[in-house]
Nucleic acid binder design. Structure first.
Length: 292
DNA sequence: CTATAGACCTGACGGC
DNA sequence: TGCCGTCAGGTCTATA
């Protein structure tokens, strides 16, 4: 599932194909993919334009165009940008085909049709996003001030793109596991030490996954067709029934706000005062379990 | 304003 | 072998 590390990888790997190239032709084979524009608006906004920059913002891939407009691409669940030489069969589930001046084709492949491409003017769509979690401005203090304002559950709060941009379901689970924070804790209930630990965990998890070129769960493929291998390093995500790598406990899967959530019930304790009650932690764990 | 459930989509997979 | 229910989750929309 494309989250920040996958989108970062796709952005970096599509860039050499498109940067400085003129867009010669555009075909929309599934109109729903571009439904933020009319098909005509989408095509006319791209045709004849040179790509002057390619960057990532949150989970968006942003192509800056010579007419001052931007092409925003969101891969959502199953989207992929595929670069292929002309004359090769388009990939299955292709929704948009972009032909570059050198004949290279960029396809938007998306089996489940959740993904979107849109040509926009201005910054509105990107300005709604929260800070980038890997930028130096995103300090532990910034994370704490964001989460302290929220009374909801920590897991869905981390997924709110207007608060922090780029974290998705898999990496939220991984970060909470690394920081030993239960996904059902209230976002504003962490100790100062826990906010710092979570901050370190978020940056470590995301940076490590970028080095591994993203996680090839489900449909994620890189523009040249290669897979990522970040999922091999996952400690909890999609590992139901396996044993915790820290304590050996069986990992659990629960549903939080409709999302599959993986965690270690022994390492990630729900009780806020667990540190002060180490001697009773065993009984606390059991009572927390039975409440759920 | 905040918080949350449901909708959108369809392939993969397991059980029978 | 083949059918069918369940699962996967990013984000928009509607509702309390």
């Amino acid at each position: 599932m494309p989250e920040l590390p996958e989108v970062e990888t796709v952005t970096n790997e599509i860039r050499p194909y498109v940067l400085g190239r003129c867009i010669e032709d555009v075909k929309v084979t599934w109109p729903g993919t571009v439904k933020g524009n009319s098909a005509e608006e989408f095509i006319s906004g791209l045709k004849g334009q040179t790509v002057v920059d390619v960057r990532r913002r949150g989970k968006f891939i942003v192509w800056e165009l010579s007419n001052g407009k931007r092409l925003l691409t969101h891969l959502k669940m199953t989207g992929a940008l595929i670069a292929q030489e002309a004359g090769i069969e388009p990939p299955p589930y292709n929704r948009v085909e972009i032909t570059l001046e050198d004949g290279m084709k960029i396809y938007f492949r998306d089996p489940r049709k959740f993904g979107r491409m849109r040509v926009v003017e201005g910054d509105a769509a990107l300005d709604e996003l929260g800070p980038e979690p890997l930028e130096p401005e995103f300090t532990a203090e910034v994370l704490e001030s964001i989460l302290k304002k929220r009374k909801g559950l920590i897991k869905p709060t981390l997924l709110d793109q207007t608060l922090i941009a780029g974290i998705g379901n898999m990496y939220a689970d991984e970060a909470l596991y690394e920081a030993k924070i239960h996904p059902l804790r209230a976002a504003d209930s962490l100790s100062p030490a826990e906010y710092r630990t979570l901050h370190t965990a978020i940056q470590h998890i995301l940076a490590t996954a970028i080095k591994a070129k993203g996680a090839s769960i489900a449909n994620y493929v890189r523009p040249g067709g290669e897979l990522g291998h970040a999922h091999f390093a996952f400690k909890v995500a999609h590992r139901r029934g396996e044993n915790c790598s820290r304590c050996g406990e069986a990992l659990e899967r629960i549903v939080v706000r409709g999302r599959g959530t993986y965690f270690c019930p022994k390492c990630q304790v729900l009780n806020v005062d667990s540190e002060a009650e180490n001697t009773k932690s065993e009984t606390n764990l059991k009572s927390q379990d039975s409440k759920r």
